[in-house]
Amino acid sequence: MTEPMRAPSENLLQTSGRTDLVLIADLIEPGSRVLDVGCGDGTLLQMLTNIKDVDARGVELSQTGVNACVARGLSVVQGDADADLPAYPDQAFDYVILSQTIQATRKPKSVLDELLRIGRRVIVSFPNFGYWKVRLHLMMSGRMPMTDLLDQPWYETPNIHLCTIRDFVTMCEGMNVKIENAYARRGNRIKMRFSKPGMLANLISDEAIFILSRPD
């Protein structure tokens, strides 16, 4: 079910403390066209530009984030994953990345549909609500779980559509989306690669990264 994940490139690890971004960056072919939806302050775009020489673009909801990105020389527009993706043409990018954002969208399914239309491959990462600590927290305290990745109280979190790894897989199957690869991560260590995520990954990982495409 699981197999060891190869170590991300050393040079990538050195540029950022964020292993999730390092892993995503490592998955990208050099020189490709990439759209990062919800690119924040542009850390991943900067990494991809510096190391992979990609044609990197970003969309970010917060205008402060956008302006910071542009001031760094990144091509970023203000926009909303729910509203602004339909403007892009089909298959305009080699990769579309949705990092730690899908759980904050209003319509995750429609967003994923759009991403798969725009990009040949889609990389989605999200916090796994099936992580044992999350389950334990809810069971023991009876309150909404808060973890490193889910660090805001329920009334302030933008995460309105949390899911578990199994939930996500079920959605992909229902949408006829091909899971090319999936990675699970706990803390700052990438633990495993799995082609068909099952119970164990869902239990022991606090974050999942999926590479998706439309079947040929």
Partner: peptide
């Protein structure tokens, strides 16, 4: 303007200044 440029996947940045 930005939507038109996105529609052709142009390389575009957009800043709104407060």
């Amino acid at each position: 303007i930005v939507q038109a440029l996105n529609a052709v996947a142009a390389n575009v940045s957009f800043v709104e200044i407060e």
